[in-house]
Design a binder for these strands. Structure first.
Lengths: 242, 242
DNA sequence: TAGGATTTGTGCGTATGTATT
DNA sequence: TAATACATACGCACAAATCCT
């Protein structure tokens, strides 16, 4: 039984300003990335319960496409759906966080070793621009801005390897840990001061790496990142034990 | 602050021997693992089109739970769903395969470095048992049996690290590459002979590693695996260029 | 202990996209 | 180019599981 119809398909639809969501795939990606960022930004903190129906309404679709996204986020360890209970944002304890950091440290060094890509002028400019944003951040410390800049910096560094599986895995571990770092830090007494210190230290790391990028010394980038990731986690753990 | 309990009450349920698929989660896992193994065994070779309806019938469910599984397998890079076309088993070319192997080599070495677990008697026995199966395989070379033993061996080695993210990632890359190895090899002229040689070489690797396990020398296990993974890929590539 | 409220899981009909004739 | 076949994507109604009173 044919449905009536058919005005001309999607192409006649009005082009809405930003993202008219042409295909199903683009819509899927948009919802996925939005949700992942929200989880990363602690808009949905660890332990929070997400209701499929709420999300469906928020994104203007039915539960079905939402569930697709949730399955993927669950496969990446950011969510856990439980029948009859809800969909919960995952949390990990310090021991697990330690394990992920140990692995991230090793992977960071691999970025400079496996299929390293010598940065061209455009990439060097991107690094410089990021350093500038980082300096602006120091004048006005803000956890959300810090998270975004940190994330952009991570992606920029990740683009220095041509090994795509490595990029993918590093990214996944990154999204799994930054939100935990942010959550843990935000509960500490000295949060404000600690954040400012962390931003300052981050700025130094960026400056160090930008210098290495200018020299085209990809090998030492790995070592710089290795020590910074390691120290960042140590600071967090030490602060937690105060 | 409410933390999600580590395990859900479902553990109160009785484990029934035949596993008649009690909960939704178990059914999901069963379908997922079955399908993954089928893909790995080339029952669904790269390029094959899977029809959701066929799978639904095969597993005795509707398309809905099948689609959940397909999304997860797609997230892991084993499938790709295209609207209006079908769900296709992914294939990767030699360059990509090379990248994954490069990464697997590094991760294999990390297994012995990050949170190494000293094997107890039970584990040593498991290694010995696997060596025996490997010897039996040499007398009767069979690609499917080889694949299964190889996989069991991989899981056994992976259990030597307490770093769970590392285990998870290694496993994912493993499932992504073995099937491609098998497919590529099966198309070669000297397939029969090559398989026998590969099994023989594999037997030697297992013997080497079992010896290292007996000595509790986890560090050298990493080096042994590193060289074997590397050489295995080189042999495949060289054979392809004949 | 029982039952209702809530939330995820499932089944199925329909819409939409793609390829082929 | 248009029509047709077929596969995935979607929306909705209902079943199953869990929680709380």
């Amino acid at each position: 039984m044919k449905q009536i119809a058919t005005e001309l398909p999607g192409s006649m639809e009005i082009e809405r300003g930003a993202a008219p969501d042409k295909g199903a795939r683009k819509r899927f990606d948009r919802i996925y990335e939005t949700l992942r960022m929200q989880i990363c930004m602690l808009d949905h903190p660890p332990g929070a319960r997400l209701r499929e129906e709420d999300l469906a309404e928020e994104f203007g679709v039915s539960r079905t496409p939402i569930r697709r996204v949730l399955v993927k986020l669950e496969a990446e360890g950011l969510l856990r759906s439980v029948h009859g209970v809800g969909t919960i944002v995952t949390d990990i304890d310090v021991d697990e966080l330690d394990q992920v950091y140990q692995l991230r440290i090793e992977l960071a060094e691999l970025v400079g070793k496996l299929a390293p890509i010598a940065p061209d002028e455009a990439k060097k400019a991107a690094f410089s621009a990021l350093l500038a944003r980082c300096e602006a951040l120091m004048a006005d410390p803000d956890p959300r801005k810090f998270t975004v800049i940190n994330m952009d910096f991570f992606h920029l560094l990740n683009s220095l390897t041509g090994n795509e599986p490595l990029r993918e895995i590093s990214e996944r571990l990154y999204y799994q840990t930054t939100r935990i770092w942010l959550k843990t830090a935000s509960r500490l007494e000295r949060y404000e001061k600690m954040l400012a210190e962390e931003i300052s230290i981050f700025h130094r790391e960026v400056a160090d790496i930008v210098a290495a990028v200018e020299l085209g010394d990809l090998g030492s980038i790995g070592h710089i990142r290795r020590s910074h990731i390691s120290m960042s986690f140590r600071r967090l753990r030490n602060e937690s034990l105060r």
